[in-house]
Structures are given as structure tokens and as C-alpha cells.
């Protein structure tokens, strides 16, 4: 985990994202948010299960983590000028996340213009060699 000084803009941004009511309710934790890269995780729990037979986490919960992490990556890019909102987000589900394991998302804002931030992300569980899902998203650049 990256330790961030408590009085930097970066730390304030982390605080902002972690305190979004929906992110907080789902138990999202931000590990890193710097220079267009964001890493977040969300521990497995019963309420997030989508398939009661297998205990596999619902795609929607993974989407929420992907969306938050991608938005955070867009907002912490050096070219970002303010807030951001999701325009579009596509998620490909490669396999079911292993029940009981924390989901971790790594997002990168790989291009930004005055109007749009382009982000891609990968979701992993304990088996880091086999991604659970990947995402690509476009975000607004506000104040641009």
C-alpha cells in the first residue's frame, strides 16, 4: 500500500472517493491514487453475492468497484481539471470471482483530452494471473 501524506490534494481526493456513500456502503478501500493510476479493493461479503448457489459475487458489485476506480484514475491524472462523470463503461467478465476472496481493481487513465478521459482497468482476486474482469471506460473532464 502506498502511504500518502495527509495534507496533499491526493489525500483529499482519496478521502473524497472513499466517502462516497455507495463506495463506503460496499466497503471499498483505496490503496493508491496517483498520476492517473488508481488501485482499490472490496472485501467479499454475503450481501454482494449474485449467485446464491455458488456464492459468487454479483457482476453489479464488480461494476461498481470498476466504475469508482476508473473515475478515480481519471480524476488523479495530471491533465484532469476537476470532477468527472462516467460517460460509458464496458465490462468483460472472464470468469467468476472466487467466493470469499477480496476483489482488487487496478485502473489506468491512459489518455486524456480537454473533454474526455480514457481509462482501462482489470479486476483480480487472489489468483493474480487470471483476471476476473476487464473494463474500458470514458469519463468527462470537468472544467476543461
Amino acid at each position: 500500500m502506498t502511504q500518502t501524506p495527509t495534507d496533499t490534494p491526493n489525500h483529499r481526493a482519496i478521502g473524497f472517493f472513499e466517502n462516497l456513500p455507495h463506495a463506503k456502503s460496499l466497503g471499498m478501500v483505496i490503496e493508491k491514487m496517483v498520476d492517473g493510476h488508481a488501485v482499490m479493493h472490496m472485501p467479499w461479503r454475503d450481501a454482494l453475492v449474485g449467485d446464491p448457489e455458488t456464492g459468487v459475487i454479483h457482476g453489479g458489485a464488480v461494476s461498481a468497484l470498476m466504475d469508482t476506480c476508473c473515475g478515480a484514475a481519471a480524476m488523479c491524472h495530471p491533465g484532469a481539471t476537476g470532477g468527472t462523470a462516467t460517460l460509458g463503461l464496458r465490462i468483460d467478465y472472464m470468469r467468476a470471482a472466487t467466493p470469499g476472496q477480496t476483489i482488487r481493481v487496478e485502473a489506468t487513465c491512459y489518455h486524456i483530452t480537454r473533454s474526455v478521459a480514457f481509462v482501462r482497468a482489470v479486476a483480480l482476486d487472489d489468483d493474480r494471473d487470471r483476471p476476473v474482469a476487464t473494463a474500458t471506460g470514458t469519463f468527462t473532464v470537468e472544467g476543461g
Partner: peptide, 17 residues
């Protein structure tokens, strides 16, 4: 379900879900 508490607006993740 709130994402941005300032607006306030639904979280994009809640909408996707």
C-alpha cells in the same frame, strides 16, 4: 446509492448494477 454527495447523484456503479 449516492455517488456524488455534492450534487447529489446516484453512483454510476449503483446504476450499472
Amino acid at each position: 446509492l449516492i455517488g456524488n454527495p455534492i450534487l447529489p447523484a446516484l453512483h454510476g456503479g449503483a446504476t450499472a448494477a
